[in-house]
Design a protein around this nucleic acid. Structure first.
Length: 561
DNA sequence: GGGGGAAGGACCA
DNA sequence: TTCCTGGTCCTTCCCCC
C-alpha cells in the first residue's frame, strides 16, 4: 500500500515566477503524458492550459497549493541539510536491516498479470457507433473529461482535463456524455474472460484487473507471454475492445508493465532478481502507482531522485526524512518488491455522495442540496445494508478550498432524516459560506448486520452488551464538538407510548431528540420485542434497553467503553 | 506518552 | 460560462486518560 500525506510532497520553485514563458510555472496533472501522447506538442498544450486557466479561482487555488508545497519542500531541504553524519550512521544499520528483510520477503514464484482496457469508455462508445472511430472524441462534459480516444490524445486531450480546455486544444473534439450502464455491461463481459484465467481475479475498476495466472501457466504448461496474448484475444473476441497487459512477479510491477506497450500491447518482466533490478533502474518514479505529482516533486526537488533505483541510493536520507511507512514503501519500490499474495477480502470502509453546483451562499439552496444528497446516500446505504456512526460533511468553497467536518454518534445511522439532520448541523456551524460542492460520507460501519437477526438474538446481544458496559447515559460521544447538551439523546426505561410531543419521557422527564429516528425506532423495536417476550423479567429488559446504541460486544468500531 | 477522533491531503480510476 | 466523483490510506493535531 502506498504511503501518502504530507511528508510525501515535493516542488520545483517556479510558482509565480513569471518570465517570458509563464505557462512553464503552471503544472497540472493532465500535462503528465499518457499512452498515445508521445508526439504531442507539450509546449503548446501547456500554453493553452495556462491561458485558459489563469485568473480563475481554480488557478488561484492551484497557486495557493503550489505555495504550500514550496514551503514543504523548503522545510524538507532544511531538514535534509541538518541531518548530521552521526544521525545518518545511526540510521544506516536499521535501513540495511530493513532492506535484508524486504529482500527475504521477495517472492518470485508468482505470476501476476495486470490487464488495462485501452481508453475504455471511449472505446465502448466507438464499438457502438463506428463512425466515431476516426474522429477525436472524449467521454465527459464541458467541466471534466473521463477519457479520450487516441485521436484526441494527439491534441493533448486526456482524462482529468476540463472539457472547455479540451475543446480549445481540439476544436473538432466530439464530446459524449458518459453512460455508466453501458460501461458496466462491457466490463462484465471482460470479467467473464478474466474468470477463465483466474476465478479470484481482483477487479480494480471497470477497466482494470489483476489476475494471478501462476496456476493457469502451470496447469496449461504455457508461458506467461502466451497467456497474455490469449487473454487479450479472448477479450477482443468477446467485446471488440482492445486491452493491454503487463506480467511480472508482483502486482506493483505488473501494473507498471501494462503501461509499457499500451495500447493493444503487452510486456512481460521476467521473474529474475537481476532483471527486475535492471528494470527498476530505468523506471521513472512517477510511473509507480502511489507516486503522484506531489511525491514526485518532493523526491526530485529535495533529493534529486528521478528513477526508482535512486530510492535505494538515497535510502539513508529517505529514512531520516520520511516516516517508517513511507520509507518502507520507497525501499520496496526501489527493490521492485510488491504484493504477490492474494489480498484479504476487502470490506468497504465508507460510502459517500457529493455534488458540484454553481457557487452559492444561499442557505436554503445548500440545505436543499444536502437533503438530496442525504436521500441518495441513504438509498445507497439501504441497498448495501450499511449503517455507520460517523458522518463527514465535505465542503468545497467557491475558491476551491476543500474542508471537511465530521461528527460521530453512538448509534448507527442510515436514514435520510438522520444523515440530513447531522449534516445540516455541521453545515450551520460553517455559515455564512459560499460553496460550489457539498458531500456527505458515512463511515465506521456496523460490523454485523442486525437486520439479519431474530428478535430473540437481538435481545440477547443487547443484553450481553449491557452486562459488559452498563453506564451509558448519552447517545453522543462525550468529546464530540458542535453539539450542545440539549442535542444529546437520552435513553429511557419506559414504554414507547409514554413519549410526549416534545420527545420527553413523561415518567422520568429525560429528553430524546426527535432528530434521531433510528434510536427512537430501536427504542420502539425494543418495546415491541418486550411485548412478545413477556416471560422475561422486567429487570432483565431494563438492563437490555440501557445498552441500545452501544458498541456490540467485541466490536472494534465502537467508542471507548 | 498512547489511543482515538477530527481534519486535511495525496492518490487512484 | 464551464476544473468531477467516490473511494482508500496516511499524517498531523488535539483531547483525554
Amino acid at each position: 500500500m502506498a504511503p501518502q500525506a504530507q511528508d510525501r510532497a515535493g516542488g520545483s520553485s517556479e510558482v509565480a515566477a513569471g518570465g517570458d514563458k509563464p505557462w512553464h510555472c503552471y503544472d497540472t496533472v493532465f500535462l503528465n503524458a499518457k499512452a498515445g501522447m508521445s508526439g504531442v506538442d507539450k509546449e503548446k498544450v501547456q500554453k493553452v492550459v495556462y491561458e485558459m486557466s489563469k485568473g480563475s479561482r481554480y488557478f488561484e487555488n492551484e497557486q495557493r497549493k503550489e505555495a504550500i508545497l514550496q514551503q514543504r519542500i523548503e522545510k524538507f531541504r532544511e531538514q535534509a541539510a541538518k541531518i548530521s553524519t552521526t544521525k545518518l550512521a545511526e540510521t544506516k544499520a536499521a535501513v540495511d536491516r530493513r532492506i535484508l528483510e524486504l529482500e527475504a520477503s521477495r517472492n518470485l514464484d508468482k505470476t501476476w498479470m495486470h490487464v488495462d482496457m485501452d481508453a475504455f469508455y471511449a472505446a465502448v462508445e466507438t464499438v457502438e457507433d463506428v463512425s466515431l472511430s476516426c474522429k477525436p472524441m472524449a467521454v465527459g462534459g464541458m467541466s471534466m473529461i473521463c477519457t479520450a480516444n487516441y485521436e484526441a490524445r494527439k491534441f493533448g486531450v486526456r482524462a482529468a482535463m476540463p472539457g472547455f480546455i479540451a475543446c480549445k486544444l481540439c476544436p473538432d473534439l466530439v464530446l459524449i456524455k458518459p453512460n455508466f450502464e453501458k460501461y458496466t455491461h462491457y466490463s462484465e463481459l471482460t470479467r467473464q474472460v478474466f474468470r477463465l484465467y483466474d476465478k479470484n481475479f481482483i477487479a480494480r475498476s471497470l477497466d482494470e484487473a489483476y489476475l494471478d495466472i501462476t496456476e493457469f501457466c502451470r496447469t496449461e504448461s504455457i508461458a506467461p507471454a502466451e497467456v497474455a496474448e490469449r487473454l487479450r484475444k479472448d477479450v477482443f473476441e468477446k467485446t471488440k475492445l482492445t486491452c493491454s497487459a503487463g506480467v511480472a512477479a508482483n502486482r506493483l510491477l505488473a501494473k507498471v508493465c501494462s503501461d509499457i506497450n499500451k495500447p493493444n500491447g503487452q510486456f512481460v518482466l521476467e521473474s529474475d532478481r537481476e532483471k527486475i533490478m535492471e528494470f527498476v533502474s530505468k523506471l521513472p518514479i512517477r510511473k509507480v502507482s502511489g507516486i503522484g505529482k506531489v511525491t514526485e516533486r518532493l523526491l526530485k526537488d529535495v533529493l534529486s531522485i528521478n528513477m526508482c533505483s535512486d530510492l535505494i541510493e538515497n535510502r539513508y536520507l529517505i529514512s531520516a526524512l520520511f516516516s517508517t511507512i513511507s520509507t518502507d514503501f520507497f525501499l520496496s519500490v526501489g527493490l521492485g518488491i510488491g504484493a504477490s499474495e492474494a489480498p484479504h477480502e476487502e470490506q468497504r470502509k465508507s460510502i459517500s455522495n457529493e455534488r458540484t453546483f454553481s457557487p452559492t451562499s444561499d442557505a436554503n439552496i445548500l440545505g436543499k442540496i444536502l437533503g438530496d444528497l442525504a436521500e441518495s446516500l441513504s438509498e445507497d446505504m439501504i441497498k448495501e445494508n450499511l449503517q455507520g456512526r460517523t458522518l463527514t460533511l465535505k465542503l468545497k468553497t467557491s475558491t476551491f478550498e476543500v474542508r471537511s467536518r465530521a461528527v460521530s454518534v453512538q448509534h448507527f445511522i442510515s436514514s435520510k432524516k438522520e444523515i440530513e439532520s447531522l449534516a445540516i448541523k455541521l453545515l450551520k456551524a460553517e455559515l455564512p459560506i459560499s460553496l460550489r460542492l457539498l458531500g456527505v460520507r458515512v463511515s465506521q460501519f456496523k460490523e454485523d448486520d442486525p437486520s439479519q437477526k431474530s428478535i430473540a438474538s437481538f435481545l440477547k446481544d443487547i443484553s450481553d452488551a449491557a452486562v459488559k458496559d452498563d453506564d451509558l447515559e448519552h447517545d453522543y460521544d462525550e468529546q464530540t464538538p458542535y453539539l450542545s447538551d440539549t442535542d444529546r439523546d437520552t435513553s429511557c426505561k419506559h414504554t414507547a407510548d409514554q413519549w410526549t410531543q416534545d420527545d420527553r419521557c413523561s415518567l422520568c422527564g429525560e429528553r430524546i431528540s426527535s432528530e434521531y429516528p433510528t434510536l427512537r425506532q430501536e427504542h420502539e423495536d425494543f418495546h415491541f420485542a418486550l411485548k412478545i417476550q413477556q416471560q422475561d423479567s422486567v429487570n432483565q429488559l431494563e438492563v437490555s434497553k440501557r445498552s441500545i446504541g452501544k458498541r456490540p460486544a467485541g466490536s472494534k468500531n465502537g467508542p471507548p467503553g
